[in-house]
Design a protein around this nucleic acid. Sequence first.
DNA 1: GTTTTCATGATTTTCGAAAACTTATTGCTT
DNA 2: AAGCAATAAGTTTTCGAAAATCATGAAAAC
Lengths: 232, 232
Amino acid sequence: MATDEGTTRVARLHHILRGDVLRGVLTPGQPLRLAALAKTHDVSMSVVREALARLAEGNLAVLTPNHGYRVVEVSREDLVAITELRVILEADALRRSIEHGDVAWESAVVASHHVLERATPYLSDGPGSTQEWSDAHSAFHSALIAACDNPRMLAITRQLRDGAEIYRQLSDGNLRASSTTQAGERDIAAEHRELMELATARDPRVVEALQRHLQRTTDDLIGSGIFGEPRH
Amino acid sequence: MATDEGTTRVARLHHILRGDVLRGVLTPGQPLRLAALAKTHDVSMSVVREALARLAEGNLAVLTPNHGYRVVEVSREDLVAITELRVILEADALRRSIEHGDVAWESAVVASHHVLERATPYLSDGPGSTQEWSDAHSAFHSALIAACDNPRMLAITRQLRDGAEIYRQLSDGNLRASSTTQAGERDIAAEHRELMELATARDPRVVEALQRHLQRTTDDLIGSGIFGEPRH
DNA sequence: GTTTTCATGATTTTCGAAAACTTATTGCTT
DNA sequence: AAGCAATAAGTTTTCGAAAATCATGAAAAC
């Protein structure tokens, strides 16, 4: 299946660049030069420019006047800010989702969890979590809140999830350096299973479970040393 | 003072178009034709296109592939969605603001409230609330939450506020048609004064006061008949 | 030795037109 | 008359290059 025609070049390039930023091919702060991108993707500079404008739309790139675009910078403060918002919004979206979700929603949650459970999380020699797992993970969290009846809330949480994904990818890159992950030693698969079971059972405690899940992930990310060692 | 040089044409046009959408010069659903806009604003089509891309960034315009941009549509459901999010996020931003705000913040709140209080809300023959009042109103709400320590939260609430402003402007356009505003007969100035006083006193009840304020505004907007008469 | 000025190169920003696409219209066939 | 292909007009999308802006470094001035 060619994921090609039927859409504009800008949209295609935007999709490619978004993926490159999310999987860390383009690193935070890196300048996004028009001529270079135009050449490597065999497209006009105008197309690159508009694709970058759409990246900026999702807070994945920033524009400085007369200096062009660059990949968005990362910081401990920003990761904390993103997480605070996700704990508020994604939790509320989940609350609404288990309230309004129908059988099709339940089924999608179970299905996406199954894909996530079967995905290979790490490659023994790879650079971190696999693309397969990242995609499945994103799809699962997306499915959980899909039945929320506030479209704007979904759009915002999707954007925040993208922002957080950059940090996860960054941590993956550092994984081989820092020996083991952390003392607490999480069982992430178990957390996901719990989310799936509570959600499909319409148990309101799933909301707090998600909040803990998000908070732990951020704590681990910060603990993994992507911002340099934590202050004493 | 020329608000002209020192910035790019795209940025200038974006600022103009954003204002036109917010004050209802460009009406919801209206197609934004490149050639026409390029001619009236005396710039190239590329500039228009990128300015529109930035409008879409703030959810003020939408792009359909091969059909170009148009002003974002409005609906009762969307206004409700925006309000739900504002009640959650703007309230939390205010809670953080009264917690972290310093004297400079207090001063800015008092100052912006003073400007709002002195602004002429309506012109007897005008099309609705004055631009002066709208700007002052926006500045006041912005000042209230300015001391929030989560930049992303501020960015999102600003975007939501823009979205809501379209509906307010729409209601203004209908004002002369529907005789009086509503039965409840609000004293909006009093509500703003209460917000100002509670906020500068760091009274936590200001959070609920803001939530009530936002909810009432939306209820009035819906009651004003901008979506046609409310279902019986 | 330090600062300022001025060219040079690199990059962004803007332009005007060609190409692609969508919709409406015309003219032909049945 | 109705249906359909072909054409035309209008609009978006893409291109390639010109114009404007910013960074670099050398030469000149203090």
